[in-house]
Design a protein around this nucleic acid. Structure first.
Length: 248
DNA sequence: TAACATGTTACGGT
DNA sequence: AACCGTAACATGTT
């Protein structure tokens, strides 16, 4: 389900548990989650699509994949959570159909925070440099590269490329430097638009090309590829207004 | 109703 | 070694 902005919303919602002690642990994770009982949750963070529970000397990495979901303060769900943390006053955090991994050490040291498009530490210049290092990659693949654009998913990919008028089959190294800069900038800017729309439950209506059939500009029928690029993800684009940049 | 999808990793073969 | 393709996981929606 979630791309980076959705994880930010979860982080905001779960922030109320920061500084609080875990009263009880449940769930079908194969990790030793019972070790979390009685521990104080120091902080709730995120990196790209990773949802992170910081317990100081260890931390929990949660990845929701395509089907994962979560509930806060709701115990009526019939499914068995992968991990369920109870706090005082009957409050709780539960995550479902996701991968849960307990990691040792300090979470601060575990990630390059400047690679997360949603993070204040986001470094556009560093992203451009990484892209220059993969000139042969398709832009569609490059946008999904979590080492470059942590948090960007398939919806953001399709929408960013339409926004900057670049065909997803374009090659990174063939983009004019101005276009490359737009790609990097819009990966972040669109992600924040996504966040605002998702927060207001109006994300879907703002889709320009993703899962659409005609271009909103002039009704041109969109092109569609079921499995585009190395990552084999759906692509939607307009041949009329998105230019394909290739090597000469 | 069956197929599909906002994702990633593991594994075997070339 | 690097790269490729497929399978695996898991669930709400169309």
């Amino acid at each position: 389900m979630p791309e980076g902005p959705s994880i930010v919303l979860l982080r905001e919602a779960a922030g109320q548990f920061a500084g609080r002690r875990v009263m009880a642990v449940a769930g079908n994770s194969k990790q030793p989650i019972y070790l979390l009982r009685s521990r104080v949750l120091r902080d709730v963070r995120s990196w790209g699509k990773h949802f992170l529970l910081d317990f100081g000397t260890s931390w929990v990495r949660i990845h929701f994949g395509l089907f994962g979901s979560w509930r806060i303060d709701e115990d009526a769900d019939p499914r068995t959570p992968r991990l369920h943390l109870s706090f005082s006053r009957g409050q709780s955090l539960a995550v479902y159909a996701c991968s849960v991994k307990i990691m040792d050490g300090a979470v601060e040291d575990a990630y390059d925070w400047s690679a997360d498009v949603m993070n204040p530490a986001w470094d556009a210049k560093a992203a451009r440099a990484k892209l220059r290092g993969q000139p042969d990659a398709l832009v569609a693949d490059a946008l999904l590269d979590q080492d470059v654009f942590a948090g960007v998913g398939n919806i953001i990919k399709n929408e960013v490329l339409h926004r900057i008028r670049v065909d997803p089959r374009s090659v990174v190294g063939a983009l004019p430097s101005r276009k490359l800069a737009q790609l990097v900038d819009q990966a972040r800017i669109y992600s924040f638009d996504f966040l605002a729309w998702k927060r207001d439950f109006v994300l879907r209506k703002h889709w320009q090309v993703h899962a659409k059939t005609t271009c909103p500009r002039d009704g041109t029928p969109l092109s569609f590829a079921k499995h585009l690029g190395k990552r084999h993800r759906r692509a939607f684009w307009c041949e009329a207004c998105q230019h394909r940049y290739l090597f000469e």
